[in-house]
Simulated assay, not measured.
Amino acid sequence: MTSNINVAPLRRSAVYKTAELIIATGPRTLESLFVAVDFGVKSSRAEKLRLAFEANWLVQDKDGQIDVTDFARNHIAAQTPKMQYIGEITPAQYRPNIYASQGLSKKNIPNRRGQRNDIPAWSVREIGSSQTKA
Protein backbone atom coordinates (compact mmCIF):
# COMPACT_ATOMS: atom_id res chain seq x y z
CA MET A 1 0.00 0.00 0.00
CA THR A 2 1.52 3.28 -1.07
CA SER A 3 0.30 6.64 0.10
CA ASN A 4 1.28 9.87 -1.58
CA ILE A 5 1.69 12.32 1.25
CA ASN A 6 3.71 15.49 1.00
CA VAL A 7 6.57 15.22 3.46
CA ALA A 8 9.74 17.28 3.32
CA PRO A 9 12.98 15.55 4.37
CA LEU A 10 15.62 17.14 6.55
CA ARG A 11 17.91 19.68 4.87
CA ARG A 12 21.02 17.60 5.62
CA SER A 13 19.57 14.37 4.17
CA ALA A 14 20.73 12.89 0.88
CA VAL A 15 17.25 13.17 -0.62
CA TYR A 16 17.08 16.92 0.06
CA LYS A 17 20.55 17.42 -1.43
CA THR A 18 19.45 15.36 -4.43
CA ALA A 19 16.43 17.59 -4.94
CA GLU A 20 18.59 20.72 -4.75
CA LEU A 21 20.99 19.22 -7.31
CA ILE A 22 18.17 18.28 -9.67
CA ILE A 23 16.63 21.74 -9.44
CA ALA A 24 20.03 23.30 -10.19
CA THR A 25 21.09 20.98 -13.04
CA GLY A 26 17.97 19.17 -14.29
CA PRO A 27 16.76 15.55 -14.16
CA ARG A 28 19.39 12.83 -13.75
CA THR A 29 19.74 9.10 -13.95
CA LEU A 30 20.10 6.96 -10.84
CA GLU A 31 23.75 6.27 -11.53
CA SER A 32 24.66 9.95 -11.85
CA LEU A 33 22.71 10.72 -8.66
CA PHE A 34 24.64 8.09 -6.73
CA VAL A 35 27.91 9.58 -8.01
CA ALA A 36 26.95 13.19 -7.22
CA VAL A 37 25.26 12.71 -3.81
CA ASP A 38 26.40 10.49 -0.94
CA PHE A 39 23.46 8.20 -0.10
CA GLY A 40 25.43 6.24 2.47
CA VAL A 41 25.93 2.49 2.36
CA LYS A 42 24.93 0.69 -0.80
CA SER A 43 22.30 -1.44 0.94
CA SER A 44 20.30 1.60 2.15
CA ARG A 45 20.18 3.51 -1.15
CA ALA A 46 17.09 1.75 -2.51
CA GLU A 47 15.18 2.26 0.73
CA LYS A 48 15.99 5.98 0.83
CA LEU A 49 14.85 6.45 -2.75
CA ARG A 50 11.67 4.45 -2.13
CA LEU A 51 10.81 6.68 0.81
CA ALA A 52 11.49 9.78 -1.31
CA PHE A 53 9.10 8.53 -3.98
CA GLU A 54 6.43 7.70 -1.39
CA ALA A 55 6.80 11.09 0.27
CA ASN A 56 6.02 12.77 -3.08
CA TRP A 57 9.47 14.36 -3.19
CA LEU A 58 11.03 12.63 -6.21
CA VAL A 59 9.37 11.23 -9.32
CA GLN A 60 10.55 9.27 -12.35
CA ASP A 61 9.81 11.00 -15.64
CA LYS A 62 8.89 9.37 -18.97
CA ASP A 63 12.57 9.14 -20.02
CA GLY A 64 13.44 7.11 -16.91
CA GLN A 65 15.30 9.96 -15.22
CA ILE A 66 14.70 11.12 -11.67
CA ASP A 67 13.07 14.54 -11.26
CA VAL A 68 11.56 16.48 -8.37
CA THR A 69 7.85 17.11 -7.88
CA ASP A 70 6.21 20.52 -7.87
CA PHE A 71 5.80 20.21 -4.12
CA ALA A 72 9.57 19.80 -3.71
CA ARG A 73 10.30 22.72 -6.04
CA ASN A 74 7.93 24.99 -4.13
CA HIS A 75 9.30 23.86 -0.78
CA ILE A 76 12.95 24.49 -1.74
CA ALA A 77 12.06 27.84 -3.32
CA ALA A 78 10.39 28.88 -0.07
CA GLN A 79 13.47 27.84 1.94
CA THR A 80 15.99 29.97 0.04
CA PRO A 81 17.14 33.00 2.06
CA LYS A 82 15.88 36.41 1.04
CA MET A 83 18.30 39.15 -0.02
CA GLN A 84 19.48 41.28 2.88
CA TYR A 85 20.64 44.85 2.67
CA ILE A 86 24.02 45.70 4.16
CA GLY A 87 22.73 47.22 7.40
CA GLU A 88 20.84 44.02 8.12
CA ILE A 89 23.86 41.79 7.59
CA THR A 90 26.28 43.55 9.96
CA PRO A 91 24.69 45.69 12.63
CA ALA A 92 26.62 48.59 14.12
CA GLN A 93 28.54 47.76 17.27
CA TYR A 94 27.20 49.02 20.57
CA ARG A 95 29.76 50.08 23.17
CA PRO A 96 28.17 51.77 26.17
CA ASN A 97 31.51 52.00 27.99
CA ILE A 98 34.75 52.12 26.03
CA TYR A 99 36.79 51.38 29.15
CA ALA A 100 35.01 48.07 29.72
CA SER A 101 35.13 47.10 26.05
CA GLN A 102 37.41 44.24 25.01
CA GLY A 103 37.35 45.45 21.39
CA LEU A 104 39.86 48.24 21.95
CA SER A 105 43.57 47.90 22.59
CA LYS A 106 44.73 49.30 25.94
CA LYS A 107 47.14 51.68 24.18
CA ASN A 108 44.22 53.38 22.40
CA ILE A 109 42.11 53.92 25.52
CA PRO A 110 42.52 57.46 26.86
CA ASN A 111 43.72 57.96 30.40
CA ARG A 112 40.77 58.37 32.80
CA ARG A 113 42.55 61.08 34.78
CA GLY A 114 43.20 63.17 31.69
CA GLN A 115 46.49 64.30 30.19
CA ARG A 116 49.49 64.69 32.50
CA ASN A 117 50.54 68.17 33.54
CA ASP A 118 54.13 67.24 34.35
CA ILE A 119 55.25 66.20 30.85
CA PRO A 120 58.97 67.03 30.41
CA ALA A 121 59.74 69.50 27.64
CA TRP A 122 62.34 67.24 26.03
CA SER A 123 59.66 64.54 25.31
CA VAL A 124 57.25 66.83 23.45
CA ARG A 125 57.64 66.82 19.66
CA GLU A 126 57.25 69.89 17.56
CA ILE A 127 54.09 70.09 15.50
CA GLY A 128 54.71 68.76 12.01
CA SER A 129 57.81 66.74 12.93
CA SER A 130 58.16 63.25 11.55
CA GLN A 131 58.26 60.17 13.73
CA THR A 132 60.79 58.39 11.53
CA LYS A 133 64.37 59.54 11.20
CA ALA A 134 65.98 59.48 7.79
Rank of each mutant, 00 (worst) to 15 (best):
D63M: 07
L21C: 03
V68S: 11
R113G: 10
K42F: 10
R12V: 07
Q115P: 13
T132E: 14
A55I: 00
Q115G: 06
P81A: 09
Q65G: 06
T80E: 05
A92T: 02
G26H: 03
E126R: 12
L49F: 09
K62T: 15
R95F: 04
P110C: 00
L30H: 05
Q65F: 12
A121G: 01
D63Y: 07
P81E: 05
P110A: 06
L51Q: 04
L30W: 04
V15T: 15
V59Q: 09
D61P: 02
K17E: 14
A72P: 01
K17C: 04
A14K: 12
K48E: 11
N108E: 02
D63L: 13
S13K: 08
D63H: 10
I98T: 01
V68T: 15
N97V: 02
Q84W: 08
I86S: 06
Q131K: 11
R95I: 10
G128M: 05
G103E: 15
N74E: 15
I127L: 06
S44N: 12
I109H: 02
V37K: 01
L104C: 03
P9F: 10
R50E: 04
S3C: 00
D38N: 12
A55R: 13
A52Q: 01
A19P: 05
N117S: 14
D118G: 08
I76K: 04
Y99P: 00
F53S: 01
R116M: 09
G103D: 13
V41M: 07
K42D: 13
S44G: 12
S130I: 00
G87T: 13
M83H: 07
R113L: 06
K133C: 11
S101W: 03
G103T: 11
L58C: 05
R113Y: 03
T132C: 08
N111P: 08
G26E: 09
A55K: 04
Q65V: 08
F53Q: 02
V124Y: 00
A24K: 14
V68K: 03
S13Q: 09
Y16P: 02
G87S: 06
Q115A: 15
L30K: 15
R12G: 09
R112F: 03
F39C: 04
Q79I: 01
S32H: 03
F39T: 04
D70V: 01
G64C: 12
D70W: 00
V35N: 12
A52I: 02
S105H: 09
S130G: 07
A72K: 03
A72D: 09
V15D: 11
A134E: 14
P9A: 06
A14C: 14
L10N: 10
D63A: 14
P120E: 15
R12T: 06
L58R: 08
N74M: 07
E126C: 00
S32K: 07
S123D: 02
T90V: 15
R50D: 07
K42Y: 08
S13D: 15
V41I: 09
L33V: 11
R12W: 00
I98D: 06
S105N: 12
M83V: 13
A134R: 15
A121H: 10
G114F: 07
I98K: 07
S123T: 14
N117G: 15
Q131A: 14
E47C: 02
G128D: 12
Q65T: 09
T80R: 11
Q65A: 06
D70K: 02
Q115I: 15
L30D: 06
V37M: 03
W57L: 08
T132R: 12
A77L: 12
G103C: 10
